[in-house]
Nucleic acid binder design. Sequence first.
DNA 1: AAATTAACGCAACTTAGTTGCAAAAATAAT
DNA 2: ATTATTTTTGCAACTAAGTTGCGTTAATTT
Lengths: 127, 127
Amino acid sequence: MSIKRKTKSLNAILSVFEQREEALSVVDLVDEFKDDMNKTTVYRILERLENEGVIHSFTGSKGLMWYAKCQTCTTHHHHDVHPHFECKDCGKVECLELEIEIPQINNRHIDSASIMLQGQCADCIKK
Amino acid sequence: MSIKRKTKSLNAILSVFEQREEALSVVDLVDEFKDDMNKTTVYRILERLENEGVIHSFTGSKGLMWYAKCQTCTTHHHHDVHPHFECKDCGKVECLELEIEIPQINNRHIDSASIMLQGQCADCIKK
DNA sequence: AAATTAACGCAACTTAGTTGCAAAAATAAT
DNA sequence: ATTATTTTTGCAACTAAGTTGCGTTAATTT
């Protein structure tokens, strides 16, 4: 399934991702647009945008769904497995443009990785 | 909260972890013991065992809770951030006794990491 | 054996995410 | 420009994971 029509709901969500660098949890997005659109719509628009390669999803530390704008993931496949960072203080989640070496181990065949780093962001260290 | 009494429910769950090396999702454990104990009991026993440093929890790729026996995590704090591995074919999840180098980046202060590797396990490669 | 305390069961609840279907809106066709 | 077609949306209902409160049971302690 791909994007056939650029509706105003889709553009509203899209502009949120364009305006900020951080990742967004679906829960926060549903809340942010609760007066403008149904939560089902939010879920479906995010799904479409991911299929188009505009954003990518990942699972946060508490098991919630998060989405972030794609920078390096140019194709529809998002096979760049970049790590994500979560600030323990302010809750902000960001993509890290960083290659983490994933060693091949034992007899296994590892083809992807979800890496979630936790700590303090630059802003919260100062405080 | 710690373990005050070693009841038969607790011993039943404990023996599952002792008998196998793989991690277990809470969902699977609740199902496995559905005739023997309430799901609330399963959740609470797992919580107690984690506080005692017997097992440790992590979030799986689909956002579910998983638990595994502690090998290297000797204290109550589990600060060894070893990666976990999930087989895409058979669904098995395992701890990897492997140190992954987490680089300090930018101005951030990274103190922990959740690393989930995906691929094929040794058994599933053979098939 | 009685009292204390920890563990358990149950039911009800919360929250995230999904599904089916009818209505609305956007695009295409006549 | 109306009509027909297709996509998108809203709504309500649902599933599934995990939590909470409270009364009861069971294990220790005295």
